[in-house]
Amino acid sequence: MKGRGWVLLAVIGLALALTGAAGAQTTEPPSGQPPTEDEVNAIAKNMYCPVCENVPLDVCPTLACQQWRDQIREKLIEGWTEEQIHDYFVLQYGDRVLAAPPRSGLNWLIYIGPWVLIAAGAIMLARLLWRLRAPAAGPEPPPQPPANGPDDYRARLEAELKRRDLKD
């Protein structure tokens, strides 16, 4: 776990996040059969209705939302895919019906923005810590020797507790 390790960790984290964000679920309805409530809900879960803001469509109790769910069912019966249904709803009611902004135009900013900032922070941190890798040639600080065994540890603990009593 040297400096490089952290950069690596950050990169892995970033990659994980991006793949996580990209992997949206797809539920293929078996065509021909009437869709079950669960299939409707699976699609509705990733949608919001403008009538009751910030409540996912699958659990929103208002009449308008119920009608929307019925519409999803109708479309499923017609054999539409989840993506087609999403596109239809976006066309009808605007971008805000989707639980996450569609990846187009200005909306890319939301997916990129925080990561640019975080990556900038991570690079700066990595640079700072990189310098620490070769410790400044100077007198080593006198404080706590590394814990080598139980006795050392006990001594350190006692010393710390005593110091605390003195300090505050």
Binding site: A21, Y48, D95, A100, P101, N107
Partner: peptide
């Protein structure tokens, strides 16, 4: 256009 930023993000 208004957008929704939901739990997925």
């Amino acid at each position: 256009q208004k957008v929704t930023v939901g739990p997925i993000f």
